[in-house]
Design a protein around this nucleic acid. Structure first.
Lengths: 151, 151
DNA sequence: CTACATGCAAATTGTTTGCATAGTT
DNA sequence: AACTATGCAAACAATTTGCATGTAG
C-alpha cells in the first residue's frame, strides 16, 4: 500500500485509490465506473465508514454493487471490517500500521491513535494464551475533549 | 460452533441466575416464566451464546421475547454483546472482572483474558488524547491452540 | 386490579442473489 | 467478441414493533 507516513486521522490519502486500481487490474478484476466511484467515496470519507456512507456519497451506484465492491475490497485486503461495540458494521482502509479508535459517545466522532507498547502487550497476552495472533481491534468509548462538560 | 475445551471458564455459574432474578426484582422488573426460562438457557450455555441458542434451549419462549429479554439483560449489565469479526452477534455473561476476548477464526471459540497492565496502558492513551474514558472493548483474532497447524 | 410482559405476525433494516443488460478488456 | 460487472427487484436473514391477551405484583 501507499507508504503514507501521514497523520493518523481525518481523511484517507488520495493515492490509495490509484494504488487500489492498480491492484484490481493486477488481479484480473475490471476497473469500472462503479468501482472508481466507490473508491473515490471511500477516499473522501472519514474513517471508519458504513456501507450507507458509500451509498450516499456514490448515489449512482446500486446498493448491491456497493456491497459487492466492499466485499471485493475486503478480499483484496484494501479495506477491513471493523466490529464496533454497538453492533454496527463499519469498514476502513487497511492501513499499514495498526491503530485503534477513540469513539465519542456524544458526538460520534472517531479518532485514532496507535501505541507500539500497547500492541506489544497485546501480542504478549496472545502468546501467553497459546494463540497465533492474526489481528486485533480495540475501541475506546468515552467523551472527546470537545464534548466534555467544561471542555 | 465448537466449544472451547478444557478451560476454566466453560460454563456459566449456576448462582448467576438467582442473582439476576434478585436484580430484576430490585429494579422493579417482573420475574416471569419466560425470563426464568431465558436465564436458565443462558446458564446452561457455553459462552458466548447467540439469540438462536436461547430460542432452541427455551422453545416455549417467543423470539421477540428472547430479543427483549436479552436487551433487558444488557441494560442490567447481566450480559454483554460481543462484536465478532465475522459479523455474527453473540452475548455472554458480564463477568465480574473486566476481560478481553481471544477469538479463533477457525473454530469460533472465544476465550478470555484480562491484564491490568493492558488496561492501565489503555487509560493512559485515552488521557493523552484528552478523552474521558467510559469503557473499551478489545478483541484479538487468530488461531486457538487446537486450530494451529501442527498444534 | 393495574400495569407490565408476552406471543404472534407484520414491519423494518441489512445483506445477498437471480437474471437480463451494459460495459471492460 | 467474450466475459465480467451492474442494476433492479425479489429473496433472505436478523431484529423490532403494534396490538390484543395473559399474568405478576
Amino acid at each position: 500500500m501507499t507508504p503514507l507516513g501521514g497523520r493518523s486521522y481525518d481523511r484517507n490519502v488520495p493515492g490509495a485509490t490509484q494504488e487500489t486500481i492498480a491492484r484490481l487490474e493486477g488481479q484480473g478484476h475490471r476497473v469500472t465506473g462503479s468501482r472508481r466511484a466507490v473508491l473515490d467515496a471511500i477516499a473522501g470519507t472519514v474513517t471508519p465508514f458504513t456501507v450507507e456512507d458509500i451509498c450516499l456519497a456514490a448515489p449512482d451506484v446500486g446498493r448491491a454493487t456497493v456491497f459487492r465492491t466492499v466485499k471485493l475490497l475486503q478480499d483484496l485486503d484494501v479495506v477491513c471490517r471493523l466490529p464496533l461495540g454497538d453492533g454496527g458494521v463499519r469498514y476502513q482502509l487497511s492501513q499499514s500500521e495498526h491503530h485503534h479508535h477513540l469513539i465519542c459517545e456524544s458526538c460520534g466522532a472517531v479518532s485514532e491513535f496507535s501505541d507500539p507498547e500497547l500492541d506489544a502487550l497485546i501480542r504478549r497476552n496472545a502468546r501467553r494464551e497459546g494463540f497465533r495472533l492474526d489481528g486485533h481491534s480495540l475501541e475506546l468509548y468515552g467523551l472527546c475533549p470537545a464534548c466534555q462538560p467544561g471542555g
